[in-house]
Design a protein around this nucleic acid. Structure first.
Lengths: 337, 337
DNA sequence: GGCGTGATTTGTATCGATAAAAAACTGTAT
DNA sequence: ATACAGTTTTTTATCGATACAAATCACGCC
């Protein structure tokens, strides 16, 4: 295994000089630099990342903890984050939390093990009660709602506003009885379900439509399967409805399928809108109207916040926690045509 | 930062003893072990992974290089691999190659940097000409075709057989003019496109149907977009056809969309089948018939092969390269109903 | 020639863990 | 008491890079 010492010997300089060349330090004579670079090329030298990590205390890798990487939303998010991290010379290791509190805590523990320099954590399971657990000594950026009092950076979607716009879009297109397919649990008012529910209510209010609890179809997971099941349930119930707002696109694609199972025409008899703007929505039949929260911007911002923390020297001049809420736009496609 | 020395001092033993406890070495008296464990818990000690890596030369992380993690197929593959790796105490870092030869070579280089103990490489861009480049000193498992002469483990799909079965399925259901939407380049006979093309031809032959080159619609990327475009092109061409076999499910979902754009009824007028069995296919409208190559088995096998190499001592008793071809089954859904 | 200043280069001492080997126990048999 | 085999613990020497500080060099100027 070629080490920095071997290169130094070959180039006739000290190991430190080689290190300087590798790390682009100033004050290396051009001629020396070239000699070193030539030696590096000749010997096919590669830095031993572990040794560097040990000395510098940094790993050059950040963790990304998501519920399940095989859900389109997280896949697309991960792709955007990997791309953004790459630009800053960071690697991304992916943890799957399974959308559970335990999984999210595990991810936190791993970065505490110094496997990662920092962590981008997409929260689903953690709640305000876990604030204490977030007080770790490495940077964490939360992707999701502002569920913690603690001073943690986070990047959120415009959930209430987006949901309001989605519901309003259905109403504009003539819907009067809009079903909401959404995670059921209320009371705790900071999770995605609740926030989007709030937006839904606001839109109804703004349009002067009465809220009918019967129109809320609760699901326990944001999957195509539960979306389909919920849609079938609603269709079978004999309930009068002409629109559906689904808490996520994945759920909405399931719902489209569930409606197809029951022969309900979309958008003829019922209009459907989702939230997230995953790529698949543009190709479903009918194609899916949705709220686009600008993933790329969110991913960039998350990585940016984390990267900024990584370079923060000491605890002295630490910035206060940042909160960033993405913008959104309504994407109208066939399902609300 | 708590080190192993601190723990040793607290427990009144030497650092080595602590190391033995941490690594479950035998020959540690029970009472000592407990004392050490108590000290570890009290001080909230965590191993410094970088230091361990430096000393042992292992990182505990494997790389997974895929084209793009936001494509359902790769997302689902990654999820399966992460799960399989977890069972063996391995972390997975994901590289995106962008389906290019350069990207794949980059991924190889990274593991050569000793960032990873080994690499699972899903090849698209590398060809037989790159065999030499694969002769690296860390384990590599290729997920994809047997495109290399070199002694590299690989896990492949039953491409020819699966494609044959897919095409045969269409023929059984009454199709006589089956379009193939597939990566265009021929000649090089080891890539996915060519192999599935071969299967397609074999099925036609077996059924006594003539091969019509006009029925082959080439695409340059395995995306929904190109699938949709190809389907629209075929529909617009006035060509007589009653079935489509798409090289992947992602392409097929695009094709379903393209056919919908042109008002072509599926399965009424044209039947469609894909390959991969991605989750989305079960929820499309119509739901997508496909070939299921048993991803889980493939992922397990890939990780297993890699893990086995990781524990191989020295170069002496190295096993010969293994080749594993997954099994498959035909999943009949609405699109060929 | 001597001196100062800034640009280059180099020595030294770690970072924290573990491999390998040696040392210190333990208990048993002689 | 002594030797011996096996168990438990410790000593010593790295793994390969870089932080820090010190040394050396180059060049202009008095």
């Amino acid at each position: 295994m070629v080490t920095i010492q071997d290169v130094a010997k070959a180039a006739g300089v000290s190991p430190m000089t080689v290190s300087h060349v590798i790390n682009d330090h100033p004050h290396v004579k051009n001629e020396t630099r070239e000699r070193v670079l030539r030696a590096i090329a000749e010997l096919d030298y590669r830095v031993n990342v572990a040794a560097r990590n040990l000395r510098t205390g940094r790993t050059g890798t950040i963790g990304l903890a998501v519920a399940e990487i095989d859900r389109p939303y997280y896949g697309q998010l991960a792709a955007a984050i990997i791309t953004a991290a790459e630009r800053r010379g960071l690697k991304v290791a992916i943890e799957q939390t399974g959308a559970s509190r335990e999984g999210e805590l595990d991810a936190l523990a791993l970065s505490r093990n110094r496997l990662y320099d920092g962590l981008i954590l997409s929260t689903v399971g953690l709640g305000p009660a876990d604030t204490e657990l977030l007080k770790v000594d490495h940077p964490v950026v939360i992707l999701g709602e502002r569920i913690f009092d603690g001073p943690v950076d986070h990047v959120a979607m415009p959930n209430v506003e987006g949901a309001r716009a989605a519901t309003a879009h259905l109403i504009e297109r003539g819907c009067r009885r809009v079903v909401l397919i959404d995670g059921g649990v209320r009371g705790d008012e900071v999770d995605v379900s609740s926030l989007r529910y709030t937006g839904y209510r606001e839109a109804l209010d703004a349009a002067g439509l009465a809220f009918d609890p019967a129109l809320v179809a609760p699901i326990d997971a944001f999957t195509m399967e539960s979306g389909a099941a919920a849609a079938r349930r609603v269709a079978d119930s004999g309930l009068d409805f002409d629109g559906i707002f689904c808490v996520t696109d994945t759920v909405a694609i399931g719902a489209l399928r569930g409606l197809a199972d029951r022969g309900v025409a979309v958008p003829g008899r019922v209009k459907v809108i989702g939230f997230d703007n995953i790529a698949e929505g543009a190709y479903s039949v009918p194609s899916l109207s949705t709220i686009d929260p600008d993933h790329t911007l969110m991913a960039d911002t998350a990585v940016d916040l984390l990267a900024r923390r990584l370079t923060e020297k000491g605890k002295k001049n630490r910035q206060v926690a940042q909160e960033f809420i993405s913008r959104f736009s309504v994407v109208a496609r066939e399902s609300t045509g």
